[in-house]
Design a binder for these strands. Structure first.
Lengths: 337, 337
DNA sequence: ATGAAAGCGCTAACAA
DNA sequence: TTGTTAGCGCTTTCAT
């Protein structure tokens, strides 16, 4: 009897009003006399009543919950996006259900459970084109992509302006007088890697340098792949004077390999990355990088999603954020920190 | 009319059976004739029917969702715990709602929304004693602590065996012949830091070394604090021959400061950390550390929580995992990798 | 300003 | 084996 928690009706009974009046009170309706309200509030207080969110979702037809699916939760950039998105969601009294889907099949299942079963009101997908998962994104459902522009023009997205960022990173190396600049990319099936490669290309071209395909090596975002890339250049006997690694982890791998090979950074080899992870300033030497405001990406994605859900905006949006050059010692002997 | 998604009754009508029969089919009940089942399944297929999870939660009185609250989502150890927990939850067809609460007040609000409003069936709290948040954990609700043993004996927990891990780390330095071993701790208000300090202490004592309070400096888990710690030793003119940093990030800070001060690692200063972050093997030099299986902690926490929810076990459990020594060059010139 | 009635989509208990 | 009757706890008409 008094074992389970009180419901709307229990409160109503105690306050001597209809359950509807209690509903009005907890929903902050104006149409209730101050004294009635006080009565109800007293009853609520006394019984320790808390509205049941599930029942509310049921009656209202919406869950007030969003979902964010990313390849994993541990990658620093993903985690930062998620954190930014979650904080913004809570700001708007929404919850964020963040899940990792390692592969397209896991993604498909997740979307089925989350969206198919109406567990959430909207969905954020991080890196939808990292593999075939984009084929399984829901149709006719509030959706925002993160990390890449949508191929289909009716899908909103928030991402880094990869081409521009890469252009600026390369420009930095060029401004230092480098003419032999290697590129270590992420997986080339990701648009992000391609866009960054294009920015690199454009900067070289504008500087009147010819594009040398052998100066480009594909990595997979891991430190190990950065390391392998430099080792490969060394093996081929074509060591560049500068390397633009498309993220900080690979840049770290490059510097690690350089160290072992006795190549001094930055005097013999300048290195620049992208991200500015927390540890980047502790690398040896501290890493010059293009700092992005990653939580901001998550924040904007959530706002966009909420706008879509609340039908505030109907316009498709493709937001591109820029990054800021942070010069440290990996490109400049006297680089600040 | 045909605009909104079909419900159980729509399917029932189409199949010419009662809605209850449809319910039986989607719940895999045996009590339904194969031919009836086929009929229903055909209707489901044809109409594209998907059960509504919210309605189900409503009727069943449980949400099949768990929550995990951590100080933030970006710290590598937290993210790893969460990922491990989330994967295990999905294994059991549960969802994991992971949220960050930067301070006790945010934590309180979150618990109120999540637990008070019955949005989740159980709760995992990472580092409940990092601040005063433990005061706001729900009573009489499925709960598991992560990262520390519960002070109250009726709360389950999963954590690293901090004392043992610190003991082993210190033993490693001792076995290398060091007698001047400094300690850089996490915030001393965290049990974890204290337990690790105790393990360090025990190892020294057992080795017949006197405990020198001035060799212990409190950090805050950040690389910067590790860096400051070593600088402080240098300033005082009492540079140790070895440092046990209670996590890898601080160890990295220590090595970074050593580099700048011209102190060679490991010849003049041996450094060991705890965690084995992905980047630890790329530090300069690669870091010797106590590797913990962090996702495992999340996995066990989820299992424990599910056991509590399903009343499988009533016994309180305080699980302590151990770590594995990984020797790299920061303690040993020829340390493997 | 308040209450009564209906229903959100499902499961559970009981009948048939 | 199947169907009927009640809710789960709330919101939403529509009266009053």
């Amino acid at each position: 009897m008094s074992k389970s928690r009180p419901t709307l009706r229990d409160v109503a009974q105690k306050a001597g009003v209809s359950h509807q009046t209690v509903s009005r009170v907890i929903n902050g309706s104006d149409d209730v006399l101050p004294e009635t309200r006080a009565l109800v509030e007293a009853a609520i207080e006394e019984m320790g009543y808390r509205p049941n969110a599930i029942a509310r979702s049921m009656a209202r037809g919406q869950t007030h919950t969003l979902a964010c699916i990313s390849p994993n939760l541990t990658d620093y950039t993903f985690a930062s996006v998620i954190e930014g998105a979650e904080v913004e969601a809570r700001q708007h009294k929404y919850f964020m259900l963040s899940s990792s889907a390692a592969d397209p099949e896991a993604f498909r299942e997740l979307v089925d459970e989350l969206v198919g079963h109406r567990r959430v009101d909207g969905l954020i997908v991080i890196n939808p084109y990292a593999d075939q998962r984009f084929e399984f994104v829901p149709k006719n459902f509030p959706l925002v992509f993160v990390g890449v522009s949508a191929h289909e023009k009716d899908i909103c997205s928030v991402s880094l302006d990869d081409e521009k960022v890469a252009y600026e990173a390369t420009r930095h190396l060029l401004s230092l007088g480098h003419t032999s600049i290697a590129l270590v990319t992420g997986p080339m099936e990701e648009d992000c890697s391609q866009d960054r490669a294009e920015g690199y290309h454009r900067a070289l071209t504008e500087a009147g340098l010819s594009f040398d395909k052998s100066m480009v090596i594909e990595g997979d975002w891991s430190a190990t792949s950065g390391r392998d890339a430099l080792l490969s250049f060394i093996e081929q006997g074509r060591v560049p004077t500068a390397v633009f690694a498309q993220n900080d982890r690979m840049a770290m791998g490059v510097m690690s390999a350089a160290r072992e090979a006795g190549i001094k950074v930055p005097t013999q080899l300048a290195v620049i990355g992208v991200d500015d992870m927390p540890l980047s300033s502790y690398f040896d030497p501290p890493l010059t990088t293009m700092r992005q405001d990653i939580p901001r990406i998550g924040l904007e994605a959530t706002r966009m999603l909420l706008d879509i859900i609340q039908k505030k905006s109907t316009a498709t949006c493709d937001m591109k954020l820029s990054a800021e050059l942070v010069v440290r010692q990996s490109t400049s002997q006297k680089g600040g920190d």
